[in-house]
Design a protein around this nucleic acid. Structure first.
Length: 506
RNA sequence: GCCCCCAUCGUCUAGAGGCCUAGGACGCCACCCUUUCAAGGUGGAGAUCAGGGGUUCGAAUCCCCUUGGGGGCACCA
C-alpha cells in the first residue's frame, strides 16, 4: 500500500516551526516510500483564519522545499489532486452530510444545551474535582422533547456518541497506546449550533474521505486520537496508522510557543537562515540517522528517513546548533548562489542604514560576488552580511582615536604607522592594487620599523573599517578600493593629529 | 482533578542484554594555524544512563514502583 500522508495547517497564525517539522516528516515519509504528500488547509475557525496567514504558510512550505502532490488552488491556479477541494471551508457540505449520516444512525444526536448550562456543568465538575465532561443531558431526549425544543427555536449542536470502551492503536513511534473512552470528556460536539463543523470531526471526515493512510502529527494530538478512531469507525472508514512526533520545546521544556521562543518560520527566513540548514536542523529534532553523520540535504534525508527512528522524547529548540548547521550549509553554497542569496540581505541592511540617516553607496554589479570569498566562512546567517561589510558601503565610518591605537601601541606610533602605511599603499599603482601586491610592502614596512606586523595591520584595519574584526586585511583593502583606502587612512591620520593638537595645546 | 506520553552530558542525540571504564554533534575551555574575526585541526572538562526494586551469569537497554517533566481533557485548531 503506497502511503498517503498530509500536512494540515490551520491559517490562524504564521507557519510555526512545529508545523514545519511535522510537514517535513510527512514529506520525508511520503517521498521515502514513494507515496503521496498532501496539503490540506484547516480553516474552519473562520474567526481566526486569514488569507495572509495561509499565504505565509504556503510560502514557508515552498521555501523549505516541501512540494506537495495534492493541495488547494492557489493564486488562481486550480487545486491539484483527485480529492479537491483541499480547503476545509469549501468542504462544509461534506461535513454536514457526514453528520447527517451519523444522526440517522443515531451515532450522533442533537444537543440543545445552552452555553450557560455547559459552563455551569463545568464549574460543578471542577468543584467536585472531576474531569470536565459532557453530562449527557440531551443524549436520550424523546422525539417529543426534541420537537418541543425545535418548536421553541432552540438551536442545536450535533454531538457524537462516545461509548464506553478501551480504544487501542499501535503508534508507529510509541508502540501500543490504550485509552479508555471515559477519559474523553463525554459525547463530543461535531457540529456547532450554527452548523459549522469542529476540528476533530473535520480531521476524521477528511482523512477518511481523502484516503489518508498514515497520520503523522505532533504528540499534542495523542490524547485526541481515540476520538478520531471512534469517528473513523462510525464513518465506516479504515482507521489510518498513527505516528505522534515528539514536541519541540522551549528552553524550559514546555511546548514551544511564541511567547517564549521565536516560532515563525518567516522570522528565520528574514534573519538569513538558508533552507538547507533549516531543513537539516528540523530533521535532527527528533530523528537521527543512527550514524555519526548529521549534515543531510533534503534528498539525503528522503533516502535515509525511517519513521521508526524517530524517538519519543521532546526536543528543546537550540538556536546555536541551528546557526552552526546553517553556517555549514552556507559554506557549502556555490559562490554565485551565495551572492544571489546575499543581495537582498545587503540591500535591506543598506536601506535601514539610509533610513537612519547614513550616506550610503549601493553595491555595483557583481560586487557582491567578489565579496563572497571574504564572507562565506564568516556568516552564521545571511543577515550577518551587513555587520561584516557595511564599511564598504558607508560614506562615513565611525572611528575614535582610542579605537585607532592598537593595544600595544601609543598614539604617536600609531600616527607614524598610519602615515607610513598610507605612503606605502599609495606606492601601489591602481592597476596592481591586489592583495598579493599589498601584503609584501606592508610587511616590509613593519619589519623596517621594528613593528609587529599584526599591530600595523590592526591600525590600518581600524582606520579603514572602523572595526577590529573584519575579513582578511588585504582583501578588504582591495574590496574598498585604492581611493577610498587612501582617503580613510588620511581621515585617520587627521583624527589623530587633531587629537594630539587638542591634548598638547589644551 | 482525570487520562495519556516521556526520561542518556547544559542542548540535540547514538545506544534495540555482554562490543559501554556510555560514542558523536552544538556550546564551553585550552592549544595549533593565523594580520583581526571567522573557518579548520588537535585535545579537555562535561552523563553515578532520574531514583529504587526486580528479571538475568550479565542491564543505559526487559518488567514494576516512585519521582520529575510534558501533553491532552472546548459549540479552538
Amino acid at each position: 500500500m503506497t502511503p498517503r500522508v498530509r500536512i494540515a495547517p490551520s491559517p490562524t497564525g504564521p507557519l510555526h516551526i512545529g508545523t514545519a517539522r511535522t510537514a517535513l516528516f510527512n514529506y520525508l515519509y511520503a517521498r521515502h516510500h514513494g507515496g503521496t504528500f498532501m496539503l490540506r488547509v484547516e480553516d474552519t475557525d473562520q474567526a481566526r483564519s486569514t488569507l495572509a496567514y495561509e499565504r505565509d504558510i504556503l510560502d514557508g512550505l515552498h521555501w523549505l522545499g516541501l512540494s506537495w502532490d495534492e493541495g488547494p488552488e492557489v493564486a488562481g491556479r486550480p487545486a491539484v489532486g483527485p480529492y479537491a477541494p483541499y480547503r476545509q471551508s469549501e468542504r462544509t457540505q461534506l461535513y454536514r452530510e457526514a453528520a447527517d449520516r451519523l444522526l440517522q444512525q443515531d451515532r450522533a444526536y442533537a444537543c440543545y444545551c445552552s452555553r450557560e448550562q455547559l459552563e455551569a456543568d463545568k464549574r460543578a465538575q471542577e468543584a467536585a474535582h472531576q474531569p470536565p465532561h459532557y453530562v449527557g443531558r440531551c443524549a436520550s431526549l424523546t422525539p417529543e422533547q426534541r420537537r418541543l425544543n425545535e418548536a421553541q427555536g432552540i438551536a442545536s449542536a450535533v454531538r457524537f456518541r462516545v461509548g464506553r470502551e478501551l480504544v487501542a492503536f499501535d503508534d508507529l513511534i510509541r508502540g501500543r497506546v490504550e485509552i479508555d473512552t471515559t477519559a474523553l470528556g463525554g459525547d463530543l460536539v461535531i457540529l456547532r449550533s450554527d452548523g459549522t463543523p469542529l476540528y476533530h470531526f473535520t480531521v476524521a471526515v477528511d482523512d477518511a474521505t481523502m484516503a489518508i493512510t498514515h497520520v503523522i502529527r505532533g504528540e499534542d494530538h495523542l490524547s485526541n486520537t481515540p476520538k478520531h478512531i471512534l469517528l473513523f469507525r462510525a464513518l465506516g472508514a479504515d482507521v489510518p496508522q498513527f505516528a505522534h512526533l515528539p514536541l519541540i520545546l522551549n528552553a524550559d521544556r514546555t511546548k514551544m510557543s511564541k511567547r517564549k521562543s521565536q516560532t515563525a518560520v518567516s522570522d528565520y527566513v528574514a534573519q538569513g537562515f538558508v533552507r538547507e540548514g533549516f531543513v537539516n536542523y528540523l530533521a535532527l529534532l527528533g530523528w537521527a540517522s543512527g550514524t555519526e553523520e548529521e549534515l543531510f540535504s533534503l534528498d539525503e534525508l528522503v533516502e535515509r528517513f525511517e519513521i521508526e527512528r524517530v524517538h519519543s522524547g521532546g526536543a528543546v529548540f537550540d538556536r546555536e546548533r541551528l546557526e552552526w548547521l546553517n553556517g555549514q550549509w552556507i559554506r557549502r553554497l556555490g559562490p554565485d548562489d551565495l551572492a544571489e542569496r546575499l543581495a537582498g540581505f545587503l540591500a535591506a541592511e543598506l536601506d535601514a542604514r539610509e533610513a537612519a540617516g547614513a550616506r550610503i553607496r549601493r553595491p555595483a554589479q557583481d560586487e557582491i560576488r567578489t565579496l563572497v570569498p571574504l564572507v562565506q566562512e564568516r556568516l552564521p546567517v545571511l543577515g550577518a552580511i551587513g555587520d561584516l561589510v557595511d564599511f564598504l558601503f558607508l560614506g562615513e565610518i565611525a572611528v575614535t582615536p582610542e579605537m585607532l591605537v592598537p593595544k600595544r601601541w601609543d598614539e604617536r606610533t600609531t600616527l607614524e604607522a598610519l602615515k607610513a602605511a598610507r605612503a606605502t599603499i599609495a606606492d601601489v599603482p591602481p592597476v596592481t592594487f591586489e592583495a598579493d601586491e599589498l601584503e609584501p610592502p606592508l610587511r616590509a614596512l613593519a619589519d623596517e620599523r621594528g613593528w609587529k606586523a599584526g599591530d600595523l595591520f590592526m591600525a590600518i584595519r581600524v582606520a579603514i573599517t572602523g572595526r577590529t574584526a573584519t575579513p582578511p586585511l588585504f582583501d578588504t583593502l582591495v574590496a574598498l578600493g585604492r581611493d577610498r583606502t587612501l582617503q580613510r587612512l588620511e581621515d585617520g591620520i587627521r583624527l589623530l593629529e587633531t587629537e594630539k593638537a587638542t591634548v598638547t595645546g589644551g
